[in-house]
Write a protein that binds this DNA or RNA. Structure first.
Lengths: 205, 205, 205, 205
DNA sequence: TATGAATGAGAATTCATTCAT
DNA sequence: TATGAATGAATTCTCATTCAT
């Protein structure tokens, strides 16, 4: 249902219509919420008509589904690249945590939309998105467990709880991060990684 | 605008109408979201008419505002009781983190509602709620800073970042906690407190 | 249904409750219109409760009916006093026109309310008010006709049309008169009387 | 917001939807008042759905605004055509007064709507309409003043007051005129013009 | 006399979606 | 591919009035 050929009638900018719609929708959903944003607003901001939107997306829900799909795909690939890479579990864990934070900050709007709108979707879509997110969390949890086996992570903590602990901080970023604030994404990533890893690390005697 | 006298006309149960409305609204908002829940649904579930609701609350937003007010008041008082109590900063920090988790789990619906609906409110209400939440976070941050001064908390971490780190985990609870899951609130509270405090603690040699 | 005993609980000022309600209602109806003014607003402004209002007046319509009744009674008595008094028809006509203008300006709010709200009333009430107004116009028309018989008013004009002509100007006063404007009520009364009488007078050779 | 293409789907009659809505709304507003007429009634009578109405008009107020706009435009053009035409001031004044009366009677419903509903509009719209009406009155006032300069109108009357005097009679027409009454519009126009002009004219010796 | 909680019917408006062109 | 008029159902909120106390 989604094509990518560049629109014939060049509107706002040169990007293909579906991409423009997604970008605009992401921005508006993040700013005002999914339900507060009308299809009319989206198409106006994207410089197209409703008919055009319904040509590319089957519904308003479909828009958000696509936003989720892209975000989760991106994050999953990034995590897997690191988690399946070289190094000790502790090293990969540190690299992954910092990377997740930085990449989340780079796509903050998408994350905010997901946080605020997931519960509004039709149940079966919601289930789909949750399943994908679970796979993602699971890969992280496995890394923690690997750390326990290699002796760098405390054996007495629950890998599940540790994963929730970390992703809580990640999902919370959208609530307080300001791009004009004192801390740079890199610093935040390293700061959170340090605290998190310290929190689950075996104490060096 | 809210009185507490028990309704004269026999309604669903004995609680005063405003309380009944708030309880029902909290449950529905948490389950389906604020925007997906109609005023009609709320009053039907509470066994009153729309007119009655608008007699006590000036709008649908007013309902959610009141839910927030009660929740934040509760949490603030609880945190202050502990933070201003006896013991070293490290002891109070541990007690407070575990308590926040347990009390959040005890009012999970309210927290979920706040998380999902805050961004829908009128800007000035949102600002108000955020200000109150900021005071709350600030009290926690001060406790972390106090720990740094007494030497129990690492000097190289940012108390702000640490606070966000912890409250991220707290706000995330509603996403994964199931009352029929493996972990009891107490255990979760202690597990998170352990990880968090370990993460920011000065390493004992 | 309307009593006049002074209210026991002295609210806003000392006037009896029904009078206070009528005064407040007149002011509000004139300012915002009948339908835009809620019963709640009226009772709030009068410093009483809804129950009290419904004790004295059977409905919101009843309030306006009473405003009309008082205004029309006042004007009718005033007109009759002059019309039935001494002097030539021409003298009485001049006196009456000036007096109607002055008295209309003195009760401008009531007149505005009548103008804007008459068409909203239940048909039988409307018919009642119109009948009373017709009697009032009729008395004026008779005076014009008397002028024709005594030779001071042109025979070729329609007394009906002349009456409408004059009362048009009177009803229009509320649209443009400002108490802080350049002209005093007395001057307006005399100006309008002069123009009107000149317009219908037999030309003196 | 208003297009004129004839509706595709077969509706009541052939006129474009916006025109049909305005015609129907004018009739209903005049008969029952603006506030007593629901949007549902209007769209039912026009044979369209509410959605269609809101496609063309942004609100119920917008309907009335458009009715005003059309009426005032019509009357202004008509008055200017005469006032700026040939002839002495006295001649143009007579022609204008008669014409205003006849044209007002030809659009009686619109005038009644304006009289009864202007005070209900949002302040800034009201101000806009009043400004336009003021320009209209001003053109008439200028004509009276011109008559004073040419010596045909008495110097001791206020052109302002004379204008209010005349437009009072005009606005009052809707209150008493019946199309099945004894007087034809032409006769009423001439009768009122005669009285008005006589009232302000310099007496011929 | 007076209170004010509660009713219940109805108001305007919004909006995702469809479909003839 | 794209348009935009039209649908129709749902939504929040208002308000005159009643009635147990």
């Amino acid at each position: 249902m989604v094509t990518t050929r560049t629109s014939g009638r060049g509107a706002a900018d040169g990007a293909p219509v579906p991409d423009r719609l997604l970008a605009v929708a992401t921005r508006l959903f993040a700013a005002q919420g999914f339900e507060r944003t009308s299809v009319q607003e989206i198409v106006d901001a994207a410089g197209v008509t409703k008919g055009a939107m319904y040509h590319y997306f089957s519904s308003k829900d479909d828009l958000i589904r696509e936003i989720y799909r892209r975000l989760l795909g991106l994050q999953t690939r990034s995590l897997e690249r690191i988690a399946d890479g070289p190094g000790t579990a502790a090293q990969r864990l540190r690299e992954a945590t910092a990377d997740v934070v930085v990449s989340t900050l780079a796509h903050l709007d998408d994350g905010v939309v997901l946080m605020h709108s997931l519960h509004l979707l039709a149940p079966h879509i919601r289930a789909q998105v949750r399943a994908e997110r679970r796979r993602y969390h699971e890969r992280f949890r496995a890394l923690v467990a690997e750390g326990q086996r290699e002796g760098s992570v405390r054996a007495d903590i629950s890998p599940d709880l540790a994963t929730h602990h970390f992703f809580g901080a990640v999902h919370h970023l959208g609530t307080w991060y300001r791009s004009d604030g004192a801390l740079r994404p890199r610093q935040i990533g390293e700061g959170l990684a340090e605290m998190f890893l310290n929190g689950i690390a075996v104490q060096r005697p």
